[in-house]
Design a protein around this nucleic acid. Structure first.
Lengths: 250, 250
DNA sequence: CGTTGGGTTGACTCCACTCAAAAGATGTGG
DNA sequence: CCACATCTTTTGAGTGGAGTCAACCCAACG
């Protein structure tokens, strides 16, 4: 399932294309230099690989450089809840450091390229780089907020709104990452993924997704989704404007 | 609504009754001394007070010393999702520091006593007390996990299981805080609160709660709830053992 | 007392689930 | 390149869980 292939060709953090995006906070020269040393290398994983497993203690920490992942819980009887999608710039594995073992699992949704960080040097962040330590707390707070939004979505909205809200949320995130081209985003999610994200059955997702497409608000061909009318979509989703937050990138 | 009354009588952190509990990590002498200085005073708030409001920037940070609170989101049309209950030892207001403003609100469920901390000195934690900074990230990670569990609960379980899981989770938390007496815990939640926690209607909560009591697994008189058979309740709730995590107390 | 907020109960509706079958897709190996 | 298996999506029919609406009870409280 998991195929982790270390790469020889790595990008220096200074030239990181992600870092240039305005949604990310700038790091000082010293911080950048440290991150550079903190980084072990890069990793390429295939779609559908388990990157971290609940109950285990990961040997590494990661930042997504490219591709999509998702965090999820699995219950004994097989029910799965996806907590959130993880996109480029998202940090993976904090729980390992804090809580001893991962409580949830992380899986890749597309082929993914990860930056890999050393766990041994993790503590030195707190000793020597308070700004970076602050950023780690920041990242955790962002992650928490993401799950809160998902909870409100699943708990309060009917299925049509719920799906619309997912699309709007995703679209906005990808827009900040400059991954929207002409209103079109990548849509690597199977209906099973959507069902487990939203707490619906796959059959119902199929119907609601069709209804959404038939409404003309979005178009869907294969693995690409086009948002035809974002304001209208946000309207039916009943989501607030939600100003994009500048966040740290480690 | 909110009545914040500063108190003259404050307990020194060394003698804090909470700190003696085994679920909390021990602080070093130096750390304790700093927390003591970091602390401004104590605050008593009545049940039903808004402690923090979404969209605002709080002047203070808090730790719950006694009583219950809850975090929640409010949608424009009035729908409310409660993300989690906050119990003694829980930290309130991290989001203010990280994300600029609170994204969710916090309200007291019972009369509550809070330890109040200075926001100005917040940054010195990261500069001077890496262990405490680490603990803040830890607290954020714990908070995230709590919401994840709630999301899995709401997204995957039918109402009866969902309610049972809430009771089990709460019981275990309170047990760690030594707030269980003969299998009995405080139950300050109205059915409206439970509905907004679980994503159900109040009418349905009434019915499911009755079904739970009729099943003999729990008893409920007034504002007290007794768990008659915890293993059986955990069984119907389909929750995993979930070993209690030792966590920091600030 | 009357008022108010919380809880209960019944009747009815409907959203979303289950079960089932079949039609595309996608991929694999012979 | 075809045959076959597997995964994904679609569609229909029937069911049931949870919502809505409404009336009513009860306790707390001014």
């Amino acid at each position: 399932m998991a195929r982790l292939e270390p790469l020889s060709t790595t990008t220096p953090c200074q030239n990181c294309a992600l870092r240039a995006l305005p949604i990310f906070r700038c790091l000082s020269g010293a911080e950048l230099a440290f991150v550079e040393k903190f980084k072990i290398g890069e990793l390429e994983v295939q779609a559908g690989s388990d990157i971290l497993l609940a109950g285990t203690h990961s040997a590494h920490l990661f930042t997504i450089f490219g591709g999509w992942c998702f965090r999820y819980d699995l219950m004994e009887d097989g029910r799965r809840q996806i907590h959130s999608l993880l996109l480029p710039g998202d940090f993976i594995g904090l729980q390992t450091e804090m809580l001893g073992t991962m409580q949830h699992s992380v899986q890749s949704l597309t082929d993914v390229r990860l930056c890999v960080f050393s766990r041994e040097r993790f503590w030195t962040i707190y000793e020597s780089f308070p700004e970076l330590a602050f950023d780690l707390t920041w990242a955790a707070a962002c992650g928490e907020r993401t799950v809160e939004v998902a909870l409100s979505n699943v708990g309060q909205r009917p299925s049509f709104e719920r799906l619309a809200a997912l699309v709007v949320h995703l679209y906005r995130q990808l827009d900040g990452l400059r991954l929207v081209k002409d209103g079109t985003i990548l849509w690597p999610l199977t209906q099973q993924h959507v069902a487990d994200l939203l707490g619906l059955s796959t059959v119902h997702v199929s119907r609601v997704l069709r209804r959404l497409v038939d409404s003309g608000l979005v178009r869907l061909d294969g693995r690409r989704l086009t948002v035809v009318d974002l304001p209208a979509l946000a309207e039916v989703a009943a989501v607030d404007p939600e100003k994009p937050l500048r966040r740290p990138l480690i």
